[in-house]
Amino acid sequence: MALNKDGFKLPGSIATATDLAHVRMELERISEQMLQERLRTPDKVIVVPRISSRLNQAASNAGMKLESDDDRQTLLKHLEEAARVAPKVKISFATNPSDEFLTKIVEWFRQNINDQVLFTIGLQPSIAAGFVMRTPSKFFDCSMRKHFDDNKHLLAQALKTTGVKS
């Protein structure tokens, strides 16, 4: 199944596997709700209930209309396929990132690395600034702690020089 290769892109608001699971559950719940509504009142026009912005953006990115049963099923398959094949990246920051900040990071990844990548967001106050990231087989430490550790000899040298002068 190559649904994702047909042009479906996860929106930036769906950054994590949890977000994706929430959107899938929401989409399933909406489909079930609309089905029940049609069964109860077959003559009534079915209105799409209030949905989250994530689901709305996912539907927009896929060019789907949620009023259509086929489009909802197609979108659900897209989301399931994304959950199955999307590469996972764990990235940690010193503080909890805002949604806006996280969206920018996710969009950069989706544009430059992989359009289906999903994140696991971690919290590591000890890094002070920057980030640490673990991809499937590599670890990237771009934190201030790493920078300080790499230049610890400069600090020791400066302390020694200061001690000699004093």
Partner: peptide
């Protein structure tokens, strides 16, 4: 400085 630098 850990909590003083904004992520933005």
């Amino acid at each position: 400085v850990g909590n003083q630098i904004d992520l933005t």
